[in-house]
Design a protein around this nucleic acid. Structure first.
Lengths: 133, 133
DNA sequence: AGCTCATCTGTACAGTCGTGCAGATGAGTG
DNA sequence: CACTCATCTGCACGACTGTACAGATGAGCT
């Protein structure tokens, strides 16, 4: 499926910017199947949610506990409550956690099944890495 | 499984730092099941790989094409080759892509099945989000 | 050897991100 | 109403990150 890999170089026909290309057909085919720019931007922002140790710990905590208020969350992940609150704002904005009010307390839980998958794949990845060493 | 949710507050027995806790039993249980600090750090770093639009585009490109040299990659994701090269160093360091030399060119391909899963879950997530709107 | 070309790297700059403090909000309770 | 307490937020600082330019590296070719 890779097509002609001859030594000739070309220039992208689309777009004004001149970029050298080895296999124009493959590039064109891949560009077609590639998510759009705004889609990859959205995906990167979504993945970024997990790309911080504090947020990751918080997510694993709510994954395990199911339900946790802010101060218990702070005690669990061992971080000041203010930091937890900031992180939760991020997570809420990204639609990853759901907040439930109970009296004075706010209980947070996971609200994204795909993120749950990501967390589990991550854990599996870690186990896999440890086995190799 | 959540146990007593009475209004009393306590202080973490472990660690010197004083943190208010509502449900000490739940906190202790969750802490036990939580990945260690260095594990969550490693996981966050791993997820961070996907948390950048350029890297995400590169990964989706090699996922689709299977195999791509740097200049074709640059043309596919539409960024300067230097930027691609920098991003690839990241990805190589994280063990996410594999480099294969072919003459003057370097061909990059995905080298982490779990990352492949993440990319696919991401795509599915996007479709799911679009359905809702 | 010298030349070309694909890729890599050092450096510097701009922008973003995470964090903690101090104060604001808002729900319960008397 | 006033008071307490859990949580949220504005602000500012320090650290990190992505990017582009220019130059270095190294493989192939004559």
């Amino acid at each position: 499926m890779s097509g002609s890999a001859s030594g000739l170089r070309a220039v992208t026909s689309i777009e004004a910017c001149e970029v050298r290309v080895i296999d124009p057909a493959k590039v064109a085919a891949t560009r077609d199947r590639l998510p759009s720019t705004w889609e990859t931007d959205a995906l990167a922002d979504w993945f970024k949610v997990l790309g911080d140790a504090t947020r990751a710990r918080i997510l694993y905590a709510v994954l395990e506990a199911g339900d946790l208020c802010v101060c218990d969350l702070a005690a669990t992940v061992d971080v000041p409550e203010s930091t937890v609150s900031h992180a939760l704002r991020w997570l809420r904005g990204a639609g990853v956690v759901r907040a439930r009010r109970a009296g004075k307390m706010m209980y947070y839980s996971l609200d994204d099944e795909h993120v749950r998958m990501l967390l589990e794949v991550g854990r599996e990845h870690l186990r896999h890495r440890e086995q190799i060493r």
